[in-house]
Amino acid sequence: MRKSVSRRCSRASCTSAAIKTLTYIYSDSTAVLGPLSTYAEPHNYDLCAAHSERLTVPVGWNVIKEEIIDHNTGPSDEDLMAIANAVREVANTDIGNKSMQPELGRRGHLRVLPSN
């Protein structure tokens, strides 16, 4: 059986245990700070209590802080539907944006778009 290892804060030289996960949504200029994610993701940042409380974002950005009040219950049906609708809306927006800008080439995760 594999022993669970707690994750550490992503901030440089911080050795505290992570309790929250920070995700940036660059297209919406939004930072989302929520409960510690189940798995470490390369584009997310795990933060300790001190760093999550002192979070600052660039001027003009929005911050969404998700707090779990009761750790014994999961998200409500209403919460799950709201998340599903938000994901669906973003997916539809991405599909619409891709059809309006033709790609000239692609290399890995990079795309070449025509200049205007």
Rank of each mutant, 00 (worst) to 15 (best):
A82F: 03
K65Q: 12
L22Y: 04
N85T: 05
T30N: 03
T93P: 00
N44Q: 13
A18W: 08
I83K: 11
I95D: 08
A86Y: 01
D79W: 09
H51F: 01
S37P: 01
R111F: 11
V57Q: 03
A49L: 10
N97G: 01
K65N: 04
P42M: 13
N72L: 00
I68Q: 10
V32L: 14
A84N: 10
I25N: 04
D94G: 00
N92W: 00
L80R: 12
I19P: 09
V112M: 13
V63G: 04
I68E: 03
S16F: 03
V63L: 13
L55S: 06
L55F: 07
I83P: 00
A12T: 10
E67D: 07
G105A: 15
G105E: 13
C9E: 04
G34E: 15
W61K: 09
C14D: 14
R106F: 02
A91W: 02
T15N: 12
R88I: 00
S27T: 11
R11P: 00
Q101H: 05
D94W: 01
D46K: 06
H43Q: 11
Y45I: 05
N72D: 08
A31G: 10
R8T: 13
T23D: 06
I25D: 11
L22V: 09
R11C: 13
Q101C: 04
W61S: 11
A82C: 07
R54I: 01
D77T: 01
K65S: 15
T15W: 09
L47K: 13
C9A: 09
S37Y: 03
K20Y: 10
D28R: 08
G96P: 01
I83V: 15
E78T: 03
R7Q: 01
M100D: 04
Y26L: 04
P42K: 15
E89R: 05
E66P: 00
A82N: 06
R54H: 08
V32T: 08
L80D: 05
E66K: 08
I19D: 12
N85M: 12
K98S: 14
V59T: 03
L104N: 13
D28N: 10
I64S: 06
L36N: 09
T73N: 03
E78V: 06
G60A: 02
L80M: 12
V57D: 05
A18C: 07
D77I: 00
L55I: 01
G108Q: 06
R54M: 09
S29C: 04
C9V: 09
D70T: 05
A17N: 02
L104F: 12
Y45S: 09
N85L: 11
L33E: 13
V87L: 08
I69C: 15
T56I: 06
L33P: 03
R7L: 02
G105P: 02
V63F: 04
D77M: 00
L33S: 07
V112S: 06
G60H: 03
R107L: 10
G60N: 03
E66L: 11
R7C: 02
T15K: 07
A84V: 11
T73G: 00
L104G: 07
D70G: 00
V57L: 06
R54Q: 15
T30C: 11
V112P: 03
I68Y: 02
P35G: 08
H51C: 12
A31C: 06
L104P: 10
H109T: 11
C9Y: 05
R111I: 15
A12Y: 12
C9I: 14
C14Y: 10
